[in-house]
Amino acid sequence: MGTDYVHGYTTHETRRLTDQAETLAGLLHAGTTYPPGARVLEVGCGVGAQTVQLVTANPGIRLVSVDLSEDSLAQAKARVAAAAPYAEVEWHHGDLRDLPFEDGSFDHLFVCFVLEHLADPEGVLRQLRRLVRPGGDITVIEGDHDSAFHHPRSTAAQSLIDCLTDLQAEAGGDALIGRRVQPLLQAAGYHDVRTRPCTVYADETLPHLVDGFIRKTFIAMVESVRERALAAGLRTPDEWRRGIRDLERAAEPGGTFHYTFFKAVALIPEGAG
């Protein structure tokens, strides 16, 4: 991983990740289908927000979920047990750069909101490739904060988004990695890389997205770095309040919001390793 997880390991962040997964399940998981019995590796499962979506949409898969944080894994176990007690999930605590699984032991690899936190995403993708059988596939989903734009337009709000991007870079990650997914997979040796944008658009006619995405996902994500930004002197408290207030206007009548995620599916070539 990078130096640390820029959003922090808090109850608020756990709630945000859950809200995000539930709000965007139909958008981000559309087309991600695995047959019963398929062995799937999910790296960087965190608190299990995406794990729940995987096992509920793909009953009968044999899922292995990995994370570096023992606390997050404990939350993930409890979350899946409550939401999908029938699911067959093997939990593994460890670094995704040094996993103990045999070459070619999985049919599919699922990586969601993980590469953005890595200092060397290409190297990690290259290491993970050996774990999937030739002819198997990888699914990668990442966002790109520069794709966020909203009405009313606000330089104060944009300043906070830029602050989040800068803090993530300082922590060793890349909040703009969505645009790099295709070239990263290509460079890491995957074949037939197919990438598509998954766009979220919200206005008052889409109240579930106004609440679930603008408020509970995006604004909550920006707010997660508030204390870090203020402590570093990157923004003043007044600047932060003004920026958040302007972001909130996008969730009010007359406001609009746009954001794009990038989803790629690629194949593991014959002779991979």
Rank of each mutant, 00 (worst) to 15 (best):
V140A: 02
I141Y: 05
E142L: 02
E142G: 03
G143I: 02
D146C: 02
S147G: 12
S147E: 14
S147C: 09
S147H: 12
A148W: 08
F149P: 05
H150F: 15
H150N: 12
H150Q: 13
H151M: 08
H151A: 11
P152N: 15
R153C: 06
R153E: 14
S154P: 15
T155P: 01
T155H: 05
T155V: 02
A156D: 15
Q158E: 13
S159L: 05
S159K: 15
L160R: 02
D162L: 03
D162I: 02
L164C: 09
T165C: 09
T165M: 04
T165R: 12
D166V: 08
A169Q: 12
A169P: 08
E170W: 06
D174H: 15
A175S: 15
A175T: 13
L176C: 10
L176F: 03
I177T: 10
I177Y: 08
I177W: 05
G178T: 00
R180F: 07
V181M: 03
V181P: 11
V181A: 06
L184S: 01
L185C: 03
Q186L: 09
Q186P: 06
A187P: 09
A188D: 06
V193E: 08
V193M: 00
R194T: 13
T195A: 05
T195R: 06
T195F: 01
R196H: 14
R196T: 14
P197K: 04
C198A: 09
C198D: 10
T199N: 11
T199Y: 05
T199W: 04
T199D: 10
V200I: 02
A202Q: 10
A202T: 11
D203A: 04
D203M: 03
D203W: 05
E204M: 03
T205P: 08
L206S: 04
P207D: 07
P207Q: 10
H208N: 04
G212Y: 05
G212P: 13
G212W: 05
F213R: 01
R215V: 10
R215D: 11
R215E: 12
K216T: 02
T217W: 07
T217K: 09
I219R: 00
V222Y: 06
V222P: 11
V222K: 00
V222G: 02
E223C: 05
E223S: 10
S224E: 06
E227V: 02
A229L: 05
L230T: 00
A232R: 14
G233H: 14
G233F: 08
L234V: 03
T236K: 10
P237Q: 07
P237G: 08
P237W: 06
D238T: 14
D238E: 14
E239H: 10
